[in-house]
């Protein structure tokens, strides 16, 4: 597992933990199941969830940029190893440790 040792700990992918935020925003239904405060006549239930879509998109975009350095680096390593794969190749079980 020489590849594993070179790529470091899984913590380098820490930004992906932020992806729990979209779930956290909508998980607790009683929090947003209300009419007040309304926004331009739209009850809270509706504008909150529409706003959560935008917040979710911002989180995913943020993670994409924070994560990009790692995935690009992984891609480069994979190339150097003689393979044309990108991204997540050398980590975990999906592809195993390729020589």
């Amino acid at each position: 597992m020489a590849t594993r040792a070179r790529t470091g700990s899984p913590w380098r992918f820490w930004p992906r933990l932020l992806l729990i935020i979209p779930l956290a925003l909508v998980a607790w239904v009683p929090f947003y199941n209300r009419i007040e405060p309304t926004l331009l006549g739209v009850p809270f239930f509706y504008w909150y969830q529409l706003a959560a879509i935008i917040a979710g998109a911002v989180v995913v975009m943020g993670v994409y940029y924070l994560d990009r350095r790692q995935t690009v680096a992984a891609e480069r390593r994979a190339r150097a190893g003689g393979s044309t794969d990108e991204g997540d190749t050398d980590e975990g079980a999906g592809s195993g440790a390729r020589p």
């Binding site: 992806l19 779930l23 969830q49 991204g87 190749t89 999906g94 592809s95």
Partner: peptide, 20 residues
């Protein structure tokens, strides 16, 4: 609406691996 919020973190985490 919450359904479409939740699909994208899943797409991001899981499917690039499968694609590779």
């Amino acid at each position: 609406v919450p359904y479409t919020i939740l699909i994208y973190p899943i797409l991001f985490l899981v499917f690039p691996r499968l694609w590779v």
